[in-house]
Design a binder for these strands. Structure first.
Lengths: 367, 367
DNA sequence: CTGAAAGCGCTAACAT
DNA sequence: ATGTTAGCGCTTTCAG
């Protein structure tokens, strides 16, 4: 005997009602409003349901009727699987999942084909709202999300979108602190590694035009924070080499660090706009036999567990809190008034990967 | 001007059709079957849609009509957020996400209240099928999933469910190998740390009755593999202390190791049924000043990145592949014939946490 | 290439 | 406490 598993949705609420000789409302109530019918009748209904293999009200039909899907959609820049690979994303999602859990809402990961502009997945998603995690300003999927008549909350990027709530951090201020830390230590020749700045797959040096044209405000702001901090110490941003990597991975960071140091051997510090890249830089240093921080200072951004474990000097941002805040903004919106922005605090973590530079510059730039 | 964001689903396919003086079919076709109407007409439709702020066909209504939700549901034992915290789960999900991505299917994380038997979330989920990740045999959520008239694939547990595909590994055989490794090194006094065996929150020694009554076949099999392996070396399972932990965390492993060693100081090796627990045991050893593997051998199971990085002796299982296989089983089912079971290979990884025991037993048990 | 008709399965007023 | 009446918004034969 195979039970109800192989029947193709044999029973519906209506058929059950007919079978029992009661109205559809009664059957519906048996499931949704137990207090609206007598216990014995309800028992009869449920018993008949079991007997006929009726699995309860169809969720899709119910959603259509109630205009509630019971789920929030999540849109990521990257491929879906990236969500589980990047530690910062993972932390964010954990927080978001926590909020969903509390609200009894499902979390639908929307399958976006990374660079393909196939937006159908966004249209397909039966959700009550979207959380958008750090996508570029002109992302077509994001545009599609905005067209859907459901509330949306953005994490990090894009900034300032009409009618959309946002949760993020002050990337610029956080990076400014980090820049001061570096210049305070005495670094004057600093290289920068940053994440992708544009749409196209590009790896290499990023000149000023490219930096300013970046469609990722977060990267723009982190670079901006560095620039401001360096300026305070009299360091001209024009002299700072910035290398960009399309892929966000330890390998990419390693390669970028190699490239950067090869082109600019005078560098005493590498500031990375993410911990992942910094971990790559660390690996490159190890491979090259460079002592960190004695020969080379390396800093990150994010404060992911693996970075912290490596003693990385970095900025810790509350990724889990970001996720939770995003979820709450979306789900517990009693005040649908005007858009809210939540800016969470960050913290400069001085680890063991930053120190006073070996002092060639002292010799040469002194008195 | 606020654009279309604040309108409450103003336009529908029908209203658009009326506005344009065409039939609903035509509007529908404009979206779903571009080849079924003239280009200019289609353009007119799309233009009017834009003008009226019509976001395209409602996904829920479409799902009701087409009987396709375009998403697969994921059921976990633990709270939703656990999915992002446990490295083995994360790997599984990455694989599953990959498969979903390929199939253009969304992935809906079903919000289960861990121990609460509130099954509504399962009923609420608008999905075309379920992937069930390692839940206990009598999980009420799982029961609810089985009642839904959609295909289901199980990962790991429960075993053998009528009409349900499954992907897993041979836990027993894998653990048998590990047991042989331990006895081969000469260990005779071995303690075991295992994950939760039952429904209730229990931490402590697990006697035979408890082991046999476990509702988690995976744990049962892993313990069984150890028992078989020890038996081969003439070690009686009755003399093997097994300690169980409800929570699956490094902290729990640490506490359990402390408890185990306190109660059984003669132990020379701790076999853990997961890497997470083993990492905890490692931490306890460090804390106690026990050298691993000189003073104490510790082994894990899973082969999660952090375990491997720590040099753990363990069994590596292909978590990502499991996820992918589960997704493919569910999504690419051309052969809806009889249930399939996919058993993936595992590999014994001998790391730096296992070695020949310091030899008190040699002195005492010798000639 | 376009339209008319017929529901998909359900819930929510509003009666009774 | 139970039934009647209307759809929710869409797709899909089947005719024209």
């Amino acid at each position: 005997m195979r039970g109800s598993r192989d029947v193709r949705r044999p029973a519906t609420l209506a058929s059950l009602a007919a079978e029992l000789g009661v109205s559809r409302t009664t059957v519906s109530n048996a499931y949704n409003r137990p207090d609206q019918l007598s216990a014995p009748l309800r028992a009869r209904v449920l018993e008949a349901a079991r007997r006929l293999g009726y699995p309860g009200p169809d969720p899709v039909a119910r959603s259509l009727r109630t205009r509630r899907a019971g789920a929030v959609g999540l849109l990521l820049t990257e491929a879906l699987s990236y969500a589980f690979r990047d530690p910062a994303a993972t932390g964010f999602l954990e927080g978001l999942a926590l909020a969903c859990e509390r609200a009894g809402s499902g979390l639908l990961l929307v399958p976006v084909s990374p660079e393909l502009a196939d937006v159908t997945a966004v249209h397909q998603a039966g959700v009550d709202g979207f959380v958008v995690y750090s996508v570029r300003e002109d992302d077509p999927h994001f545009k599609a999300v905005l067209e859907r008549p459901v509330p949306t909350v953005v994490c990090d990027q894009p900034l300032h979108v009409e009618g959309v709530d946002r949760v993020g951090i002050d990337d610029r201020a956080a990076m400014l602190d980090l820049a001061r830390h570096l210049t305070g230590l005495g670094h004057r020749h600093i290289g920068v590694l940053c994440m992708r700045l544009g749409t196209g797959r590009y790896d290499g040096p990023a000149d000023d035009a490219r930096q300013n044209g970046a469609t990722y405000p977060v990267q723009r702001n982190r670079l901006g924070g560095l620039r401001d901090g360096f300026a305070e110490a009299g360091i001209d941003w024009a002299g700072i080499p910035v290398h960009e990597r399309f892929a966000h991975s330890v390998d990419a960071g390693q390669a970028a660090a190699a490239e950067l140091l090869a082109a600019h051997p005078e560098i005493t510090a590498i500031a990375c706009t993410s911990d992942i890249l910094a971990l790559g830089a660390l690996r490159h240093a190890a491979e090259r036999g460079l002592a960190v921080p004695e020969d080379l200072t390396i800093t990150g951004f994010d404060g992911v567990p693996e970075g912290l474990r490596s003693g990385l000097t970095t900025v810790r941002q509350p990724v889990l809190e970001k996720g939770r805040a995003a979820g709450e903004l979306l789900l517990e919106r009693g005040d649908r008034n005007r858009p809210r922005t939540v800016v969470l605090p960050t913290e400069l973590i001085v680890g063991t990967t930053s120190a006073v530079p070996r002092s060639p510059e002292r010799w040469f730039s002194g008195w």
